[in-house]
Simulated scan of single mutants.
Amino acid sequence: MTVRLELSRYGMVLIPVLLAMLLAAINYDNNLVYSILFLLIGVLVVSALYTYRNLSSLEVKPGNIWPVFAGGTLRYTLQVVNRGNHPVHSVTFRRQDSDATFRALCPYLAPGASQTVELIESVDRRGRFCIHVMEIATLYPMGLIRARFEVPLEWDYVVYPRLWGDRPWPDIEPDVRTQDDGHYRGGESFYGLRNYRPGESQRHIDWKAVARGRPLMVKEFASGGTGRLWFDWVQLSDLDTESRLSQLAVWVVQGDRAGGPYGLKLPTQVFQPAIGPGHLQQCLTALALHHANGGGRS
């Protein structure tokens, strides 16, 4: 870790003032001006030493990063440890390889203590990205000198497609469909919704959705997870690529919440019906990376 020192904008204002005082002291041979000049130079030097000391004992490691959908807010944490025998004050953290202007602040860290610092930034595009470098900086104690160092992270993360779309689920396989007499097979567990077919019993119509202005939808039930549901790329042929991915992402999230097995079919990948967090992550990651132009910025 190499701590770099540079003048802050306040320090850059002070330098011309010091030069003007030096010229005045030389021109008028004024000892009082010399005294004030050397005092200010001493303050600048001492400020640089304390500013350097404020960062020299810090250790920064990557923490956690949370899943995020396009249009949402990326949240990730850093673990900060003070290895020195003196407290650390007013340290800022900023992702250097991003256009994001958000800075996290650690106002105080006692000797030997550790702290979790959370950073946030908005994300607009799906795909795989990387946090390359984190900049840690401070102006403590006087704001005249800025000390900073960089932490290489190379921290990959995936932004899932934007959650957008309100189309009903595709038809579920026969083992979970409601029968024409209004009874359902295999148990009492709610599985999902599908379009109402003319002539079917109205016993399981979702009347609350109808009251909200939605089309007629039929509640479906399953037992023991025997029903299977496919979310297929070709089922949304009337939509453009990003709209398809957004609608499929909505379906995948809804399918996971319903608790039954669901599968995903993309032009280049097929995920067999399954359940669980791992399956959800696989499906959403495949949607995020489908023909995505990966990059290092978000």
Rank of each mutant, 00 (worst) to 15 (best):
M1T: 15
T2R: 07
V3P: 02
L7R: 02
R9I: 10
G11C: 08
L14C: 09
I15P: 01
N27D: 08
N27F: 00
N27H: 08
Y28L: 06
N31C: 00
Y34F: 11
F38T: 07
L49W: 14
L49Y: 14
E59T: 11
V68C: 13
Q79F: 03
V80A: 03
G84V: 08
H86L: 15
V88L: 01
V91R: 15
D99Q: 11
A100P: 11
L105F: 10
P107T: 03
L109R: 07
P111H: 13
S114R: 14
T116I: 09
E118K: 09
E118F: 06
E118D: 11
L119E: 07
E121K: 13
V123A: 04
V123Q: 03
D124F: 13
D124R: 15
F129T: 14
C130G: 05
M134N: 13
I136E: 01
G143W: 04
R146H: 12
A147V: 05
F149D: 00
E154L: 11
Y157R: 04
W164A: 12
P168H: 01
W169S: 12
Y184W: 12
Y184G: 02
R185V: 12
F190R: 11
L193Y: 10
R194M: 04
S201R: 06
F221E: 01
W230D: 05
W230G: 10
F231R: 10
F231W: 02
Q235C: 08
D240I: 11
R244A: 06
V253D: 08
Q254S: 04
G255D: 00
G259V: 03
L264I: 10
Q269M: 05
V270G: 11
V270D: 03
P273R: 02
H279K: 09
Q281D: 12
Q281S: 14
L284D: 06
A288L: 04
H291P: 01
G294D: 13
R297Q: 09
S298M: 00
